[in-house]
Design a protein around this nucleic acid. Structure first.
Length: 362
DNA sequence: AACGCGGGGGA
DNA sequence: TCCCCAGCGTT
């Protein structure tokens, strides 16, 4: 016996009426967002990358600035990665920016600067997964492909009474298969965006506004009064905590030492005051380390405090040590000596902004 | 399938 | 606090 889909659509579900009601509502109620000005595939693409795991209101100013600075694929393809990261500074998930930059260069090199409207070619681009692929195809190219994100899984788990764990990867493919079969063929753009808009404005995680919902009559969870029990989602595990020491080192000429983070992992290619794991370096061993490793004498001048920063998978505690370098000879440390007022030209992660604020307050 | 990857909004 | 957000790449 062959493996069948693990869900079944409610018998009375009328997908055509659902589609019609959804699209009519969307066309009337949709928000005026900057990436809805036109169907420029590059513009849609940038917006979809920025919107990954990031709320609309957060994205708007970044999107406007980014499109102003890089209006076409050619502008972005020619940019330096450091400048692209600077434009992304504060938005988070910086690999999105690096992948988008790489992918845009690929589009210029391989596709003559035209964002491909082909399903397989689109998916090959760095940073384009199944959701973004479907979003670009439907919104920019009017192709009937599903674009299943968190909103869509929440909405459709309620409408169709699907109680599979949406935290599991397989569940998304289930939704994609179902939606591909039932979605509007005439207006996939408004269908997909309508589902997401509905999830954002009406069918919210807590306290869904069912009395305002345009598809209430189609919703099986509402009919059974279990809409707040869906979707089913297993809990993420708690973050680990890590402690670091940030060294704000002032050279004899009054400049400060900063370093570039590695080109992979957390905050890749962003800049920071030299950062040490506290399990390796406490206050005194840091002084010894500079003595033995670099033959440099440093003197701690202040301890302005500690910064806490929460990531999705780890919590950082960063102790700040301000010190002076006691010699004029150059330090063989992988980094740059800069005036503090030029620090703003480097892409800095938020945790380093917090360190900087601590310095100016004290 | 599980994990690493930012930062912020809202209850 | 906790959950969630127009997810993707790597392992």
């Amino acid at each position: 016996m062959s493996k069948t889909s693990s869900i079944s659509i409610p018998v009375l579900f009328d997908h055509q009426a659902f589609s019609r009601d959804l699209i009519v509502w969307y066309e009337k109620q949709k928000r005026n967002l900057p990436w809805r000005d036109n169907q420029d595939p590059y513009r849609i693409w940038v917006s979809e990358i920025m919107l990954q795991q990031t709320q609309v209101d957060t994205v708007i100013p970044y999107f406007k600035h980014f499109m102003n600075r890089y209006p076409t694929v050619y502008d972005l393809a020619q940019a330096d990665e450091q400048d692209v990261l600077k434009a992304w500074e504060g938005l988070g998930y910086y690999s999105r920016a690096r992948n988008l930059h790489e992918a845009v260069k690929e589009v210029v090199a391989t596709y003559g600067g035209e964002v491909p409207g082909d399903k397989k070619e689109l998916k090959k681009l760095k940073g384009v997964g199944s959701y973004t692929q479907g979003a670009i195809l439907s919104i920019a190219f009017d192709q009937a492909e599903p674009a299943v994100d968190g909103n869509v899984m929440r909405v459709m788990s309620r409408v169709l009474m699907i109680d599979e764990d949406i935290a599991k990867p397989k569940t998304k493919t289930v939704f994609e298969d179902v939606i591909r079969d039932i979605m509007s063929q005439d207006n996939p753009s408004s269908y997909n965006q309508g589902l997401m808009e509905l999830g954002a404005l009406i069918c919210q995680p807590k306290n869904p506004k069912c009395d305002e919902c345009p598809v209430q009559t189609h919703c099986e969870a509402y009919a059974q009064g279990v809409q707040t029990d869906l979707p089913v989602k297993s809990k993420a595990k708690k973050q680990k905590e890590e402690t670091y020491v940030a060294l704000v080192l002032r050279g004899a000429d009054g400049r400060y030492l900063i370093e570039k983070r590695p080109d992979n992992g957390l905050l890749a290619n962003l800049w920071q005051f030299p950062l040490f794991s506290q399990s390796e370096f406490d206050e005194t061993s840091l002084i010894n380390h500079f003595e033995t490793q670099y033959g440099a004498s440093i003197t701690i001048t202040s301890r302005p405090g500690r910064v806490k920063h929460v990531y999705s998978h780890v919590i950082w505690h960063v102790d700040i040590i301000v010190a002076e370098l006691n010699e004029a000879k150059p330090l063989d440390y992988e980094g740059e000596w800069i005036d503090l007022n030029t620090l703003s030209t480097y892409p800095l992660p938020n945790v380093q902004q917090k360190v900087l604020e601590k310095l100016s307050v004290n």
